[in-house]
């Protein structure tokens, strides 16, 4: 057994040294594209790639815990690398206290809550492979950030006070004109574009269900590829309109409804 252990260690050390050398020489770490080309990855980088695959195609790679038809990259645009679109380079910010659940959150709990609320699914266990892979990917993206400091363009921009209340009626008009071509007149989404309400969208406990949060996201990024073209007021109106629509209930307060939703959906 000792000999086996020794050989095993030898192999691991050899792998750990040999695989990342190519990337380290250039700019700290290999890019995801480079990693995807590698024939063999060590445990960390294979987890990073797995995390990347989960973020870009959650439906295929983490379907166990997903209850709707969204992918992580529907909100974390460009696989979580785009600023002001909830970028994922936030490993240095955790653990931190969050008002949402009233306790100090590690990155693991943060990811698990994403599955519970935004993905309207069930909470994965702490040691689920999917959670570990996503946290590896988040650590990978956070390379170069200062620990504890807020990364540039974190979250979504906070919109200034426009002096008017958000108006869902004008929001509806804006939605039908600007958004419906991709997200559907009934918010059901078309091929490749996420549904924004209905039972296949995020639930009422999600961060996006907050009017100001969603407005910031919409103003900065929507319509896709043409961000910041709406006025602040238009973004707030659309956000208020979305907020009125039917969507899965908050898993924190309607337990029985939640069960029924899971059983029928």
């Amino acid at each position: 057994m000792l000999a086996i252990n020794f050989i095993r260690r030898l192999f691991l050390v050899a792998l750990l040294i040999s695989v990342p050398i190519a990337g380290l020489a250039q700019q700290g770490q290999p890019s995801i594209q480079q990693l995807l080309q590698e024939p063999f990855l060590d445990d960390y980088y294979s987890n990073v790639v797995y995390g990347y695959e989960i973020v870009t195609d959650t439906q295929a790679n983490a379907s166990r815990y997903v209850g709707n038809s969204l992918n992580c990259s529907n909100c974390h645009l460009q696989a979580g690398t785009q600023q002001e679109a909830l970028p994922l380079n936030v490993a240095g910010m955790y653990p931190k206290w969050r008002a949402k659940n009233g306790k100090r959150n590690g990155i693991g709990l943060r990811i698990r809550e994403c599955f519970l609320y935004s993905m309207d699914g069930i909470m994965p266990p702490e040691d689920a492979p999917e959670v570990l892979a996503i946290s590896a990917y988040i650590s990978y993206l956070s390379q170069g950030q200062i620990m504890g400091a807020e990364p540039e363009g974190r979250g979504v921009p906070t919109l200034p006070d426009t002096g008017y209340d958000p108006n869902p009626a004008t929001g509806r008009a804006v939605y039908l004109e600007q958004c419906a071509s991709c997200h559907g007149a009934q918010g059901e989404g078309v091929a490749g574009m996420p549904p924004v309400w209905g039972l296949n969208s995020y639930n009422k406990g999600a961060g996006m269900h907050d009017i100001r949060e969603a407005a910031g996201f919409i103003w900065a990024n929507m319509p896709l590829g043409n961000g910041k073209s709406l006025t602040h007021q238009q973004a707030l109106d659309v956000s208020a309109y979305l907020n009125l629509q039917i969507r899965p209930s908050d898993p924190r307060d309607s337990k029985f409804l939640k069960l029924l939703e899971h059983l029928i959906n």
Binding site: L116, I122, M123, P125, P251
Partner: peptide
């Protein structure tokens, strides 16, 4: 609710 119990479920099986 699940955030309180932190129960581990089987989840969807593809």
């Amino acid at each position: 609710p699940q955030p309180v119990t932190e129960l581990e479920y089987l989840g969807r099986m593809p």
